[in-house]
Computed example of a mutant assay.
Amino acid sequence: MSHSLWWRCAPQNLAHHQPIRLRRLQKPCAGTFPHVRACIFDLDGLLLNTEDIYSLCANTVLARYSRPPIPWSLKAQLMGVPGSSNGEAFHQWAQLPISREQYKAEQQIEQNKMFPMCEVLPGAKQLLEQLSQAMTEADGRKVRIALASSSVTSNLKLKTSRPDINEMIRLISEKHRILSDHSRMKGKRGKPAPDIFLTALQVINEQLDPSEDEIRREECLVFEDSVPGVEAARRAGMMVVWVPHPELYQHWAARESEVLAGTTGLVKLDGLDQTASPGKTNDGWGEKLGSLEEFEYRKYGIRRHSGDVVGSRIWITNKKDGR
């Protein structure tokens, strides 16, 4: 599958929806973390190669009308943002001779053909399998996992129609899957606002045993591939692992510290800074990986079900010393 373009689509523009207001967090010193009790995953471009499929489908329609592929300067703004694939920024650039409704219909026809052929990205299934049975190093409590994706339900069904992919996604409880058209997201904003990650944490906490303390935002680790998604995680007060597409990373490598802090300002949402602050540069609450295969459980105080013996907390600035 070509890596020339990544793409995201969702049913609506959430930029004007009511924000979730956050309390201020007192974060630990740079370089240290709380032990992780919950991991929240994006989907497209992180677990599945569907970002490349979005790209292929979009470029197919664009080429039909003699339009070029989208430049990365625009693509980065569209990734992870609900409604952006058929939004104002895209159409201002594309200048297509067809209506938005027709473009959306033609794009969906291509997606319906291609999504069932998607593939699992390296390390995704193994990571979910491990985390689904993992415990916290601190007190042996079960690590919870959730999905927080700007995709929509109908597209998720297509993407997970193959038995092997369906088996992987079932590692995440259906109650813990928050998509952009989920009833709990009504009236809330999409990424880069933190709403979808806070909603995912809310549903996790609702399913905890009464004897368990609620999981705090600072005890959550988000896995993301997009720049707006990383910003959403940081504005939610959560730690983040950024696993970007190689071509996306080429364009953002020089600003990696800004991406990990959630301070790029790539996508603007009215009032966002008044309701949810990003992180700070080099505060140690984010790291970039080339693949999910590189994830270090011990760094985040997670004991894998295979019997890892884990020592005390690891600093994020330490040399990588185990998976």
Rank of each mutant, 00 (worst) to 15 (best):
R235F: 00
M185Q: 08
V152P: 01
P246M: 01
H245Y: 00
D181K: 11
C118A: 15
K188H: 15
S161F: 12
S132A: 15
V143P: 07
Q126H: 08
K159Y: 04
A200W: 00
V120F: 03
E174T: 10
K188T: 03
E174G: 02
A233I: 05
Q250C: 13
V241A: 11
L171T: 06
V143K: 11
R255K: 15
D213L: 12
Q202N: 11
I172C: 07
A193K: 05
R184D: 12
G123P: 05
R141T: 14
E212T: 00
E212M: 12
E206A: 12
N155Y: 08
E174S: 15
R170N: 14
A193T: 07
D195H: 14
P116R: 12
K188Y: 15
M168E: 11
S151K: 04
R184Q: 07
L248D: 14
R234P: 07
E224H: 13
D195L: 03
A193M: 01
E219D: 07
S149R: 05
D195T: 09
S132E: 06
P244F: 01
R217F: 06
K125D: 11
A233M: 12
S183C: 10
E247T: 11
E212G: 02
A134V: 02
P194M: 01
Q130W: 01
P228G: 08
M135D: 08
T160A: 13
F197W: 01
V222H: 04
L127S: 12
T199W: 00
A236V: 00
T136F: 09
P116H: 07
A134Y: 00
V241W: 10
V143F: 09
G140Q: 05
N155V: 04
L208P: 14
E231M: 00
P194G: 03
R216Y: 01
D164G: 04
C118K: 07
E219M: 10
T153M: 04
H182M: 02
E219F: 12
V222K: 04
L248I: 15
Q133H: 13
